[in-house]
Computed example of a mutant assay.
Amino acid sequence: MSLSPKHVPTPITLPFEKFWGWLQAHANCILRAGTPDAVLFDHEDFHWHLAAEDDATLIVQLVRGKELVGEMVLLANDVAYVQCEFTESDEYVCECVVESETAREVAYHFVMAHEYDEAELGAGGRHWTH
């Protein structure tokens, strides 16, 4: 008897604007979010709040009731693209990549409970929970 290998979706690359729109509809599906210097971890008592300070400055907040637990500021104009893929530990990681002439680095990352699905984008602003 042969076992079929586990199907692992191919990594995808998205423009940041498309990713941010999807993320807003899936804020309840974020497991972790961070930068190279700090990480915010989800908890059953917390919820995620995503907002825009202006067109270029986006805010990711982790909140308990009305108390701010942690906050991450994203500079949207700096993000060249977002690379999303499953890891060996079955987490779906989305990395926001910043590029310059000499370097490419992950400025922000989001670990999600599930993969990106473009087909659901037409769902009319529904918010998902997992």
Results as ranks from 00 to 15, higher is better:
1 M>K: 09
1 M>W: 06
2 S>V: 04
3 L>F: 01
4 S>Y: 00
5 P>T: 01
9 P>M: 06
10 T>F: 07
11 P>V: 08
13 T>I: 09
14 L>H: 05
14 L>R: 02
16 F>S: 01
17 E>W: 02
18 K>V: 13
18 K>L: 14
18 K>E: 12
19 F>A: 10
22 W>I: 01
22 W>T: 00
24 Q>F: 06
24 Q>A: 01
25 A>W: 01
28 N>W: 04
33 A>V: 14
33 A>H: 02
34 G>P: 04
39 V>H: 05
40 L>D: 04
40 L>A: 07
42 D>T: 06
42 D>C: 12
43 H>L: 07
44 E>A: 04
48 W>L: 04
49 H>A: 07
51 A>M: 08
51 A>D: 15
55 D>Y: 11
56 A>W: 14
58 L>T: 02
59 I>G: 01
62 L>H: 04
63 V>C: 01
63 V>A: 07
66 K>N: 15
66 K>G: 03
69 V>M: 02
71 E>F: 00
73 V>P: 01
74 L>M: 14
74 L>K: 03
77 N>A: 03
78 D>R: 11
80 A>S: 14
80 A>Q: 12
81 Y>Q: 15
86 F>R: 05
88 E>G: 04
89 S>D: 15
89 S>R: 10
90 D>T: 04
91 E>R: 04
93 V>Y: 00
93 V>T: 02
96 C>W: 11
97 V>N: 14
97 V>H: 14
98 V>W: 06
100 S>E: 08
100 S>D: 13
101 E>Y: 07
103 A>P: 01
105 E>S: 11
106 V>F: 13
109 H>Y: 15
109 H>T: 03
113 A>P: 00
114 H>F: 00
116 Y>G: 04
117 D>E: 10
117 D>Q: 05
118 E>Y: 02
118 E>T: 01
119 A>F: 00
123 A>Q: 12
125 G>A: 07
126 R>F: 04
127 H>N: 11
127 H>S: 08
128 W>Y: 13
